[in-house]
């Protein structure tokens, strides 16, 4: 009896009984939740919502951070890959361009009756006032001074200096004294002399070979090499007349010529070692008239 005299034991026993009763009561099917449960659940809901929201934000943020790190690595890899492919593509485009140039060159050589040697342009004259270029063929390839240099589009110039393995080509646009080519107007067959310079950089001057004026010369007339030329085979396009100049008697005394060949974009040229002009045809070979 003395146990019940101790209040602590009494309270613990009562709580135990109460809990047991609650367990029994709540273990049964109920019509609805109790008021106490309802109160606490309702009170906790907003707080839980906030916590839940924060949890989602933190989780999502963490996920984003880790994902971003992954994306960055992936991005770096893709960038490197793009760079590699771009470089490769550029290389392929360059190769394709070279291939086309070589194919064209091979076709050009085959179509010509002349004995020719193909040469690659190594460099151009560093000065703005001289128009020459250096090619990778020289004495060892049988090149000699004053040999004609052409491209599939037309006249380039002539050999000015020959070294063992390189040669200097003076372009038809070089303005120095003595640099001229005999030609004729394709439309009228009038004989002309083409000298370098006289207009903008990269242009030539055309003057009549016989008289002091042209009887008939118009803009866009094509000038070709004449049969009288010692160096060049006949019929090779030299350039197109872009501006005619009138003298005091209102006659055309000279004209400015734009070369057919883009002389600053040359990579491969052909040196004519020996020319064989065909007797029957007007033009020696199917030389492509640039710009026509």
């Amino acid at each position: 009896m003395h146990w019940f005299a101790n209040r602590r034991f009494l309270i613990i026993a009562l709580i135990f009984l109460l809990l047991t009763w609650v367990m029994f009561v709540t273990s049964r099917e109920r019509a609805g939740e109790g008021k106490v449960e309802y109160f606490f659940n309702t009170a906790m809901a907003p707080l839980e919502s906030i916590f839940s929201y924060c949890g989602i934000v933190i989780h999502d943020s963490w996920k984003t951070v880790t994902h971003l790190a992954q994306l960055k690595v992936e991005n770096d890899l893709l960038r490197k890959e793009i760079e590699r492919l771009r470089t490769r593509q550029l290389g392929l485009e360059q190769l394709q361009k070279e291939n086309e140039e070589l194919r064209e060159a091979a076709g050009f050589v085959k179509a010509q009756a002349h004995e020719m040697v193909a040469a690659e342009v190594i460099s151009v004259n560093p000065s703005n006032w001289s128009r020459t270029l250096t090619i990778n063929r020289g004495k060892n390839d049988g090149l000699k001074k004053n040999m004609a240099v052409i491209s599939p589009q037309g006249v380039v110039g002539r050999i000015m200096e020959v070294r063992d393995n390189t040669a200097e080509v003076i372009l038809l646009t070089d303005p120095r004294d003595g640099n001229y080519i005999g030609g004729m107007v394709k439309r009228t067959q009038n004989m002309v002399i083409v000298t370098g310079g006289g207009g903008y950089l990269g242009e030539c001057t055309v003057k009549p070979a016989v008289d002091n004026f042209f009887t008939d010369l118009k803009n866009n007339d094509i000038i070709i090499t004449a049969a009288t030329s010692d160096l060049f085979p006949k019929g090779i396009p030299i350039g197109r007349v872009v501006k005619v100049s009138y003298g005091p008697n209102k006659m055309v005394t000279k004209a400015i010529l734009q070369p057919m060949v883009k002389l600053n974009k040359l990579h491969i040229v052909f040196v004519i070692k020996e020319k064989h002009d065909p007797v029957s045809s007007e033009s020696s070979a199917p030389i492509l008239p640039g710009g026509e």
């Binding site: 703005n128 004294d177 000298t195 006289g198 207009g199 903008y200």
Partner: peptide
Amino acid sequence: SFHANYRFSLLFVSA
């Protein structure tokens, strides 16, 4: 002056 076929007025502006 060394007989290059250039026109000074034209090339001063264009070159």
